[in-house]
Design a protein around this nucleic acid. Sequence first.
DNA 1: TGCGTACTTGCGTCACTATGCAAGTATAGG
DNA 2: CCTATACTTGCATAGTGACGCAAGTACGCA
Lengths: 131, 131
Amino acid sequence: MTQVRTRRPASPAEASACCGPIDDLLDPALFKALCDPTRAKLLACLVKCGRPCGVGEVAECCSVDLSVVSRHLRTLEAAGVLTSSKSGRSVSYEVRWKPLSGLLRDLADAISRCGPASGSTACNGACHVRR
Amino acid sequence: MTQVRTRRPASPAEASACCGPIDDLLDPALFKALCDPTRAKLLACLVKCGRPCGVGEVAECCSVDLSVVSRHLRTLEAAGVLTSSKSGRSVSYEVRWKPLSGLLRDLADAISRCGPASGSTACNGACHVRR
DNA sequence: TGCGTACTTGCGTCACTATGCAAGTATAGG
DNA sequence: CCTATACTTGCATAGTGACGCAAGTACGCA
């Protein structure tokens, strides 16, 4: 059973032995999907468009090959950023609005809750629990 | 002068010609810093610790070489995630709490504001302005 | 001035990833 | 059945990045 800690770990070594919300939220897989400039552009495009878009349609917003766009959208889908739906011969991708914004907000909250504003040594389990 | 648009772009092609909050917030450079598993672990460590930590100290939380940790912390600093301060022969890194959590929150807001919940075709410039 | 601590930098290696082109698959329409 | 559309997959290439080791630098201390 995990036990909520009321005090921060004294050292990074101790901190790494604890687990908290941040460990799940700071998932490299999500950021790996967002770190490529082309993918970021495609995502920004889909966000601003605000509706499901076909692969060829999205491909118009950047100068790379259609096959590259197809692969990037798949990558974003695998990371949980987009959802796809097939209708006839066209495939539409759309932003997973709530999961994406929710995760980013949770991450922001988890970070700020560990910050110095929330008390000097006490954190009441907001940052971590005993593993 | 940029002009606020009250309607979404009709297509991704049109969307890519607009710029909005999302374009600045979806900066690949930040995500590039967070996409490496080792860096994510180092950052999680610093977050949970909640105070400035030395390089050697942070290095104890993962099994890579000290030189690797040094480079990773520099990378995170360059991305605006950490700040460093030198005191004598030790270098301390700390999370930039407010800028980091603030940016993630802004990004979450920018995304959700473009989502379908905020109206079908109207977005009143939340998503984009004319370039 | 010499030594130890606390990092940083140079360098070679290995693995992964983005890209374009070409070929393949799936579906709608005539 | 044939063809066009809308993607997807295979493959080769070029670039990037993480890593460890070894050497270098910066600073405190005796």
